[in-house]
Design a binder for these strands. Structure first.
Length: 737
DNA sequence: CTTTCAACTTAGCAATCTTGGG
DNA sequence: CCCAAGATTGCTAAGTTGAAAG
């Protein structure tokens, strides 16, 4: 399945999230809203009124606050909305410097501990991976050579060579922990020991210099720090599309007023009368300045960043030092929702230590920044996060978690693909079952089976129900009547279903799919007597679906189909497209094409790069000149050959031979360029990264590389190799998904 | 049962870094 | 050496899922 559909995703002309189409959609939207209202009532006011909802949320907040105890005193959070962003002053810089003294000892200790442990862990099987290591280290050596040159330059400038030192240390850390050869934790336990330094907070707001003005109604006005900070969030976005949107402006202004002083509130009543342009100009100048910094400054800055990574970017989990994924707390700013988000423009508050829950081993809690306290310190080893806080716009919990190269993430990833492979074994039976269910007398079962068919055939997402205060997007279970249209005949095909809806991230999904007659009939029935805004599968939701799936196979959920479908397609396409006799370049094109088939299946799109046309043009130019060069070279080769024949001189023969080789080389270069052009053109509006990172069993790619003598780094960059270390190590050329 | 919550994966875009050609 | 195109990384929003609460 899949491969046949793969190419059919191409809609007539405008398959992509054409943002320009938003306007056209607005009309539909009104209708949908109407439909939604109807739905709401027909479903007996499932959705609580806003008023009530708010109450509910407050309740939740109360509860959360009651929950904070342990190790730290309860500091009642003041009504968050009204706290000016900068009201709690806390100097990041002073914290940094203070922490710098102590942690050093801390850091050192970590290092020696880790080092001491490693040699013991390394076993004989390490030989297997040694190729990799060799390659990596030789590459590093190269890099180091370069670095050293740079380092020298820096040395002359700084009197020291910081780069060199940093590099060396990096190398030491590089020794990999082969967690995949170790025993797993018992169920539910995620770690035995966990120690870290806590998150890094956003730096304090720096008030604007006095000469950067804000004008209201044409008159200069000095804003209070809090109002200025929030205002500057908006100012910085003045060039962005967002500020043309009503919802954005309305939300921003409403929230902004909460940060104003009483008198500011009285004066500033209309966003349209606000003039932020001086602020924007100032920000632009500043970023320009930043760009033009001297080399020394840039190096210095880089070194400082590396220093914070070294200090806060790592944790020790079960005795191993592992990288943290996002150790920085999100800075305050304006919420940028994707698509038509009702909350866009709202102010995302500054997060303080008092908002943050720390999770770690007992007795190892990091110190909060001076003058502050953590909201709570807990020691829950059934979860993987190191710190968390609740974000104020959507009320969601945000987490600090490990990097994808870590054991915790890798093990889960591995397990995910193992489940997908299990599905491969039982998918045929499952398909038989749901096809049988298309005939069921029970509506619920028939809806379920049709939805499952979509999930399986089209790799649609499950499609949870969404609240009114989120962008309106759908997936399989939440499709509405308006999202599909049925055509008995279309382009010479029978029983065609046309899908047109916004999925995750408001990315448009458009697809014309011929389906089995039975499915078609069922859809007709499901749509009977319904309005466009009504649910297509009104007796179905993701919980029902997943429960059913779990009965079919342990661990099976809707998203496993996506993983399975993607990985399976890659395997099939690779088998089909790879010519063992072709060059590495061509093999890589084949790989990219297989990858692309998956991306199309999963609807992973991207905006056409802004520079696409130009870069294509450049490439074409290069190809043309290369062709000319080849022509010339061939001509002179012929001449040389003639000459050699005529004179019979050895020198001439050698010259001819040289020319011949040159021609060959040039031809190969041309081929590479042409392949590159094809690849790029085909990739214009498709994003390969997401599937590569999240859906394709890395062992398929690793095996393919090994089998076809393609170096792994042609397929995976450094980060990806780190993430998939387990697969690189364990998959041999014989692996099949 | 329905709703809410917590935890974790998946997603595209923006910012930043690297590279390679002039 | 410089610059822009291209590649990589960072960021954080938006999904899925299972469990708890109501």
């Amino acid at each position: 399945m899949g491969s046949a559909e793969v190419d059919k995703h191409t809609p007539p002309s405008d398959k992509h999230k054409d943002k320009s189409k938003d306007k056209d959609r607005k009309h539909d939207k009104e209708e949908r809203k109407q439909g939604k209202e109807d739905r709401k009532h027909s479903k007996e006011d499932k959705k609580v009124d806003k008023e009530e909802k708010k109450k509910g949320k407050d309740k939740v907040k109360d509860k959360a606050e009651k929950n904070q105890h342990v190790e730290v005193k309860n500091e009642p959070l003041s009504e968050d909305d009204d706290v000016p962003l900068a009201s709690r002053s806390f100097s990041q810089t002073s914290q940094d410097s203070e922490d710098d003294d102590q942690p050093l000892a801390f850091r050192k200790k970590i290092k020696t501990e880790v080092k001491a442990e490693k040699p013991v862990k390394r076993k004989a099987e390490d030989m297997v991976v040694d190729d990799e290591d060799d390659y990596a280290s030789s590459k590093k050596k190269n890099k180091k050579g370069k670095e050293e040159k740079k380092g020298k330059a820096a040395a002359t400038a700084n009197g020291a060579s910081p780069t060199k030192r940093v590099k060396k240390e990096k190398k030491e850390e590089e020794e990999t922990w082969k967690w995949w050869e170790e025993e797993k934790h018992e169920d539910g336990v995620k770690w035995k020991s966990l120690e870290h330094k806590g998150p890094v907070f956003a730096s304090d707001y720096e008030p604007l210099p006095g000469n950067v003005k804000f004008k209201y109604n044409g008159k200069e006005m000095k804003l209070s720090t809090a109002a200025e900070e929030v205002g500057s969030f908006y100012a910085a976005m003045l060039d962005h599309d967002y500020v043309t949107k009503d919802v954005f402006n309305k939300n921003f202004f409403k929230d902004w007023r909460k940060f104003m002083t009483h008198s500011e509130k009285e004066i500033i009543t209309d966003l349209k009368k606000c003039d932020f342009t001086y602020m924007l100009t100032y920000f632009k100048a500043k970023s320009e300045e930043k760009k033009n910094r001297s080399k020394e400054e840039k190096q210095q800055l880089k070194a400082e960043n590396e220093e914070t990574v070294k200090e806060y970017g790592w944790c020790i989990i079960d005795g191993h030092k592992q990288r943290i994924g996002n150790f920085k707390i999100e800075p305050p700013g304006l919420f940028r929702g994707r698509g038509d988000h009702p909350k866009m423009g709202m102010v995302k508050r500054r997060v303080m230590p008092e908002d943050v829950i720390i999770n770690c081993s007992k007795g190892t809690a990091p110190k909060p920044p001076p003058g502050h306290k953590w909201k709570e310190v807990r020691h829950d080893n059934t979860v993987t996060w190191l710190a968390s806080w609740t974000e104020n716009v959507q009320g969601q919990v945000k987490y600090i978690m490990l990097n994808s190269a870590s054991r915790l993430k890798g093990e889960k990833d591995w397990q995910k693909y193992e489940i997908a492979r299990q599905l491969k074994d039982s998918v045929e039976k499952i398909r038989e079952t749901y096809k049988e269910d298309w005939k069921s007398k029970e509506m619920k079962i028939r809806q379920r089976s049709v939805a499952l068919y979509f999930i399986d055939k089209l790799a649609l997402r499950a499609g949870n129900e969404k609240d009114e205060d989120q962008a309106d997007t759908v997936g399989a279970c939440s499709l509405r009547v308006e999202h599909i249209s049925l055509h008995e005949q279309k382009d010479g095909k029978q029983c065609v279903v046309v899908f047109d809806f916004l999925g995750k991230d408001s990315i448009r999904y458009y697809n014309e799919v011929p389906v089995e007659k039975r499915v078609f009939k069922n859809l007709q029935i499901f749509m009977e007597n319904k309005k466009p805004g009504d649910d297509l599968f009104d007796r179905l939701n993701t919980t029902i679906m997943n429960k059913h799936l779990n009965d079919l196979m342990e661990g099976l959920t809707a998203k496993v189909f996506r993983t399975f479908n993607a990985s399976n397609t890659l395997q099939e396409q690779l088998d089909k497209l790879t010519d063992p006799k072709s060059s590495v370049t061509e093999k890589i094109l084949a790989y990219n094409r297989a990858n692309r088939a998956v991306a199309i299946l999963c609807n992973h799109q991207r905006a056409v790069p802004k520079t696409f046309a130009k870069s294509m043009e450049n490439l074409q130019k290069k190809i043309d000149t290369k062709r000319e060069t080849i022509e010339d070279a061939e001509k002179s080769y012929k001449d040389l050959k003639k000459e050699a024949k005529k004179t019979g001189s050895a020198a001439a023969k050698i010259a001819a031979g040289k020319k011949e080789k040159q021609v060959e080389k040039l031809k190969e270069q041309l081929m590479k360029l042409e392949v590159q052009a094809t690849d790029r053109e085909e990739n214009k509006e498709i994003a390969l990264g997401t599937s590569k990172l999240n859906y394709l069993d890395p062992r398929i790619s690793v095996a393919w590389c090994k089998k076809n003598d393609v170096p792994i780094e042609k397929i995976y960059n450094k980060t990806q190799r780190d993430k998939f270390q387990w697969a690189i190590d364990m998959a041999g050329p014989e692996f099949v998904f």
